[in-house]
């Protein structure tokens, strides 16, 4: 996925939308109209701008953020050490699985060679083991799961800096 390096610049209204609409979207008959009114714009402008921000990949999504564990599912972070020569094919294999919710390439300043980090999201906890096995079988590489043993804090709301 491109990193939105070519995104058009954000204006003050775009920034207000992103900063103020990361939660508490209204649950009412016409929620965009209500949210737009709080931002001092009209419903059509909000809908148009949301579509543009999604098309430009400034937003990856607009909707509910699920914690699937509360419905019997599971999210598990996992990592691999992928040799450079296999990188492209392993990315394709891992990304092709619908259970892979996101995937990041990472590098360490200290020589740690776990360079691929992805999150598996499945409807049942059994789905995680099956997905891990599929990835190991398809890539021939070991996958290291890092299930959360305890969550101390999660609050992913960042204010626009551009």
């Amino acid at each position: 996925m491109p990193e939105a390096a070519h995104s058009p610049p954000l204006d003050a209204i775009d920034r207000a939308i992103i900063d103020h609409l990361q939660g508490d979207f209204p649950l009412c008959a016409a929620p965009y109209a209500e949210a737009a009114s709080a931002l001092g714009i009209d419903e059509n402008e909000l809908l148009t701008r949301l579509q543009r921000l999604l098309d430009a990949r400034v937003l990856t999504r607009f909707g509910p953020m699920f914690q699937i564990e509360r419905m019997g599912g599971a999210f598990v972070l996992a990592a691999m050490r992928v040799p450079d020569e296999n990188w492209t094919s392993v990315v394709a294999t891992v990304n092709a699985l619908p259970e892979v919710a996101h995937n990041y390439q990472r590098e360490s300043g200290k020589g740690c060679d776990f360079n691929m980090w992805f999150v598996l999201a499945t409807e049942t906890t059994d789905g995680i083991a099956a997905a891990l096995e599929k990835i190991e079988a398809a890539t021939g590489l070991p996958v290291y799961p890092f299930p959360k043993l305890r969550e101390y804090f999660v609050e992913m709301k960042l204010q626009v800096r551009t």
Binding site: G23, D24, R57, V58, G63, M65, R106, W117
Partner: peptide
């Protein structure tokens, strides 16, 4: 949806930004 928010199945409803696009180009685990 309200019930899923109350029970935590939904953490929140709204915009999910691409961090890179809003200026957070460094993400350190």
């Amino acid at each position: 949806l309200q019930r899923m928010l109350d029970s935590g199945v939904i953490r929140r409803i709204g915009a999910v930004p691409n961090h890179y696009a809003i200026g957070y180009t460094a993400n350190g685990m």
